[in-house]
Design a protein around this nucleic acid. Sequence first.
RNA 1: GUCCCCAUCGUCUAGCGGCCAGGACGGCGCCCUUUCAAGGCGCAAACACGGGUUCGAUUCCCGUUGGGGGCACCA
Length: 513
Amino acid sequence: MTASDFDKIFSPYDPGDGKVRVRFAPSPTGQLHIGGVRTAIYNWAFARRNGGTFILRIDDTDPERSTEANTRAILDAMKWIGMDWDEGPEVGGPCEPYFQTQRAHIYQAALEKMKANGSVYPCFCSAEELAAKREANQKSAGYTGYDRTCRSLSPEEAQARIDAGESHVWRVKVPEDRGDIVFEDAIYGTCTFHADIMDDFIVMRSDGTPTYNFTTAVDDAIMGITHIIRGDDHLSNTPRQILVYEALGMKVPMFAHLSMILGPDGKRLSKRHGATSVQAFREAGYLPEAMMNYLSLLGWSLDGETTIFSLETLCNSFSIDRISRNPAIFDETKLAWVNSVYIKEMGAKRFVELAAPYLVSAGLTTAEEIESNRGWYEEIYPLVRERIKVMPEVVDAVAFLFRGTEVEFDEKSVAKVLGKEGVPEVIDSIIEVLGDDGLAWNAEAIEEAMRALLEKLGKKPKEVFQVARVALTGSMVSPPLFESIALLSREAVLARLESAKPIAQATFEAKQA
RNA sequence: GUCCCCAUCGUCUAGCGGCCAGGACGGCGCCCUUUCAAGGCGCAAACACGGGUUCGAUUCCCGUUGGGGGCACCA
């Protein structure tokens, strides 16, 4: 591989339509992080808004930590939340391959070109030496980067040491007369870094693998990326990458650096803040639309007023100039609220789909049972629709429906509601009403009959309905009473009422004593 | 330590020289109501500080303070 080979390989991809080309380039060293998805969403939405191309590239140049399973998980998470990509793994594209580990020949060729034009030099300092120097520097005058020991080696001596098989890396030779490195950032505006304090950073490791700042710049250029939308943490890498672009004679794209997402304590969001990966939120029962909606709003605003919007709206209205410069604190309470909005809109069919795994794993029912009795399960939806913010909450909300003739009583509810005088008599009359064979077993008929009973007994709604609620559900907090009764079998209802009677009696007596 | 970035209610934000500083989450109160929710109505809640520029600064400039990020043969 030589410098001229590089020129053959290196013809930046350009479809010639002047359209936007953006990329999301995760490294598969773990799950897809919240900050990562947000970056992906902004890239994706930006491409969709402008009729451009969204590219997914896997930056897997860290062999120690990159795994195929992680790559898989990232692709799944991207799809789950609602994104698709025009080029990348699974779909291919004109710039294949989209895995950096498969692009070694390209980086090698780029290095040859840089060797040929003198923009890199070999460095023989060992990692230990460098670490020692760094430590010493940091203690005294403050760290200022590599001391450029090997930069002054004569080409002959350097070549001789390479030929002798001495271990070495390749460093970029920051031009002496470079002056300030200035670039445009669509979010921060003009950014300036002083080249004279820039480090001669490593581009190729001693084991022959390229480093991030090198591969990223090379690939972004070759793939014809027009806008690099990425995390703020890369801001100070940008001048390094610009040096690579310049050494290779490549065009510098537009940048857009996103501020970080912080945890509730104002520190960078990390594992110690709890769930931070898309998959974790998925498992916690959040809906993809809610994640997409909430994350879009974390650092971007549609108009300052609208908080709930569809994927389509996002794609039709996303713009970089409405991205905020402030770091944003991730607020799970608001995420939960957004989620509850989508739960209210999702419909009974999808509800059963999503609730099923939680009901099954809680041991309340089985997948087969749900399959053969879908209609009944769909009727649960209206009962919980406005009462749960995340899917797992469905378990506690409706567990009482699955206990047959048994009731799991909440002590406080029993004491407060069933312990009053005359409750057993009230229960008796409820049994009489609900035990009537002529009563149609649906919420409307049940409500009508129960209200008639109210009239007959001359009691307030609370005095009868709360008794029924606790007797049937075990708790003074439950979904709507008549709908709940209708979902239980008449046998179960009567049995539960019967067994509540002695409990009411005993509670009352205990109170008297 | 050093370089870079940021600064409006508790939180996410609107604002791009003149606004009673708007919306949303959360909080609180009232209404509705058989519980819990949902819903409706309402309340409290912010321009970090100090200098300039200007007839006029939340908005522009400079400091201070506070916060964040980078400074690896990680990405």
